[in-house]
């Protein structure tokens, strides 16, 4: 895109200006604006405390994990509305396995991941093989997974209070794996959840930017027919994208359960929309074929920090919703300008 000679001639200011015109530059601009709001409204200095930023990252980690998986799907020109429900289903199952049945984490985590992958696989099968529109297929999975979550939990939260046959409650200890996930490492500085997010994000980035599969996803999103005629495994690659999204939702579900110390069948409602917003605010096109995880990371931070800043300033709910809407619209509009 940038021609070397041109760039040299333009000088520093010109280069900065050009960078601001690029998708990355625009996304960063939105993030910078949000951070600026934080510096102005710092809530008696709360914004300058390291703990605030640590918490902001921890809070946004679950969304971030969902958004990373969502990016893989959106790049193919699809969408996965089921992630919030899959998160709930996995959190319920994981809590049941570890709290009520006393399974070890080594058995419970793989099974939880498998459940997520199966849900994603079902969506993927419908979209890739049966050519159901992604919106419809994942909308169905969204309802199905939510129903399964309620069925598996009997509509109640799966907590450390276990009901016995006679109706009395027995209290069990919070499983070690919950404690392990909901703690901080590296000198008490990095929440484990954030580390999990970083790992998930890194994996997704590697897959999309450095693996053959990532190329296939971009090609499918950019021009599915051309991809097919170029001999790419279109069905398999698409299917795998939804499986990955389900897997990531399962990871998010485990993190959610660990942080809440329970499995909530109502958890994750609306998370799919937030994850989509993060991807889009970053600048990845909902039409597919354009964007990437670097952009999504900026989107995740933008929305995550926005929430945090509104929260420390105790802005009432109505104001928060309005501001969030305005920011999303503004971020997406600046990106449209570029084309």
């Amino acid at each position: 895109m940038t021609d070397d000679r041109d760039t040299a001639a333009m000088g520093f200011a010109g280069r900065v200006f050009r960078w601001l015109g690029s998708p990355t530059g625009r996304a960063c601009l939105a993030l910078a604006l949000v951070l600026l709001v934080g510096f102005v409204f710092h809530a008696d200095g709360a914004f300058y405390k390291a703990g605030t930023h640590r918490d902001a990252l921890r809070q946004t980690s679950v969304y971030g994990i969902l958004a990373a998986g969502m990016t893989l799907v959106i790049v193919t020109g699809g969408i996965d509305l089921a992630v919030g429900s899959v998160l709930a289903l996995v959190s319920v199952c994981f809590a049941t396995l570890t709290i009520h049945w006393g399974w070890s984490a080594w058995a419970a985590v793989p099974l939880a991941l498998l459940i997520g992958a199966l849900c994603g696989g079902a969506s993927g099968l419908a979209v890739a093989s049966w050519r159901v529109q992604p919106f419809i297929a994942t909308l169905a999975m969204m309802a199905l997974a939510r129903g399964l979550a309620k069925y598996a939990s009997g509509g109640m939260k799966v907590s450390t209070a276990v009901q016995e046959v006679d109706g009395a409650y027995r209290y069990v200890a919070v499983p070690a794996v919950f404690r392990a996930i909901d703690t901080r490492i590296l000198g008490d500085n990095v929440p484990v959840v954030t580390a999990i997010f970083a790992v998930c994000f890194g994996l997704a980035w590697l897959a999309l930017a450095r693996h053959r599969w990532g190329r296939q996803l971009y090609a499918i999103g950019g021009n599915e027919e051309a991809a097919r005629l170029s001999g790419l495994p279109v069905v398999g690659a698409k299917f795998a994208a939804y499986v990955a999204s389900g897997l990531f939702a399962a990871v998010a579900g485990i993190c959610q359960a660990a942080q809440e110390q329970q499995g909530d069948p109502e958890a994750g409602a609306g998370y799919e929309l937030l994850a989509i917003a993060m991807v889009v605010v970053g600048g990845t096109s909902l039409m597919g074929g354009r964007g990437g995880l670097g952009l999504t990371l900026i989107g995740i931070l933008t929305i995550g920090y926005l929430e945090k800043i509104l929260s420390i300033n105790a802005v009432p709910e109505a104001g928060r919703l309005m501001l969030t809407g305005v920011i999303i619209l503004a971020a997406v509009l600046t990106q449209k300008r570029g084309r």
Binding site: D44, D55, S311
Partner: peptide, 15 residues
């Protein structure tokens, strides 16, 4: 919502 309560409490603790 519990997750939201946790977030808000973290903000309160920071302040």
């Amino acid at each position: 919502l519990e997750p939201d309560a946790r977030k808000e409490m973290e903000s309160a603790l920071a302040r």
